[in-house]
Amino acid sequence: MIKAEHISKTFQNVKALDDVSFQISKGEIVCLIGPSGSGKSTLCRCINGLEIPDSGNIYIEGKQIDYTDQKQAAEARSKTGFVFQHFNLFPHMSVMDNMILAPMKTLHMSREEAITKARELLSRVGLADKEEAYPKKLSGGQKQRVAIARSLMMNPQIMLFDEPTSALDPEMVMEVLEVMKQLAFEGMTMVVVTHEMGFAKEIASRIVFLEEGKIIEENTPDLFFSQPQTKRAQDFLKKVLY
């Protein structure tokens, strides 16, 4: 469904991605893990065109995407949803307005249609009573759930999560992961950049381990967590699973 070939990206002399190739098929849930600075977020962002790779190609449903071309970018993004570490809700809009702005503007949904859909999604993420609230009145966990619901408003075929729980207080991590788990059970194709090893182990169909801009190891969660093949993965797991 998504294929990334030979992606390289350098930020101010730091190689964030070094000739990385990656793909995901429909229904798969891939967790990207690795130490900070390993390039996992950059890979996730490249898929959605938030970063433009220095070299390499991105294919979505077999079609090569040039994200510098607005039309191609729009077409590609219409298939993907993106959830940010810092939620990035629009602070000057109510939850409802956050939800319905893009569907009305880009999918030409009617206001009523959009509101109905938004209410449905909000109740799915357990926030039916928050539609009039402004983001600053919400907790971090609530904000992230709204952000996920906002992405779902666009009917994405694949959801990209860039460290969705890293900015949350520990007691709020669970509520966000629960929403994601629910999505996974519903069959959503997902790429999740995460540090939540338990979560990855539970829901991932595949683990991709990156370090220093390279994919070091790729495996099923069971094998990856029980018998990591590479020394680097072993060292990493030793540090995070204590």
């Binding site: 959605n48 065109g49 938030l50 607005q70 729009a74 993004r77 219409s78 993907t80 949803g81 993106f82 940010f84 810092h86 939620f87 990035n88 809700l89 629009f90 702005l101 893009a102 503007k105 880009t106 952000a147 906002r150 992405s151 666009m154």
Partner: peptide
């Protein structure tokens, strides 16, 4: 920057992004 990125990932056009976000 997150506001631009969120608007972009929601596929808002440049004009809508400027105007509404």
């Amino acid at each position: 920057a997150g506001q631009w990125e969120a608007a972009m990932s929601l596929n808002l056009s440049h004009w809508d992004m400027m105007r509404y976000v």
